[in-house]
Amino acid sequence: MDLTRFLQTVSTFSDLTQNELEVLERALRVDDIPAGHVLLEEGQKSRSFYIVMKGEVEIFRKHKTGQGLDDLGVLKSGELFGLQSLVCNQRQNSTCRAITPVTVASLPKTAFSILYNAHVSISEHFQYIVAQQLSRDLRRLDIGVMDSIRSGDVAPLYKAARETGTVN
């Protein structure tokens, strides 16, 4: 699969120039991952961010009671994960595991730092994506807590929380 051509199909990168896509393509590493392999683990600091090229990746997190797991969804081709924790230097809030054999393009933290210093336009683009997602997540919680205040019911807030920050 031609990586540059693939990146052109990913909506997240639609604002990058052809030159920026080529720089990003050179920095990314492509790997084939077997089904069942854990790419990012909840609680750990992110070492890379990933773009799913082929296959499916499931996301889940430990239930707060300690019993069982909360299923948060499935990532498919063109979707990213691990970017927020890389940009914000935070721990992962969920585990990402290959359901099927997957092909991923990844950018390790060291390469991300080099990109940040050498091609600030690309790293700024990632920062903007993360800032937008964080703003949406907090706005969702904002509305959820207001609905809970108005109704006196915790359900709107919990619903907002479950839809928020699915993958960082």
């Binding site: 914000c88 700024e124 928020t164 920050g165």
Partner: peptide, 28 residues
């Protein structure tokens, strides 16, 4: 972009911490 990169980094870290603390408060 070098200016907005610095601004966005400050906002990302601040917003991420707010989100983390809020989620912790909700789930606890």
């Amino acid at each position: 972009v070098s200016l907005t990169s610095v601004l966005l980094q400050v906002f990302c870290e601040s917003l991420a911490e707010r989100l983390r603390c809020t989620m912790q408060l909700v789930y606890e």
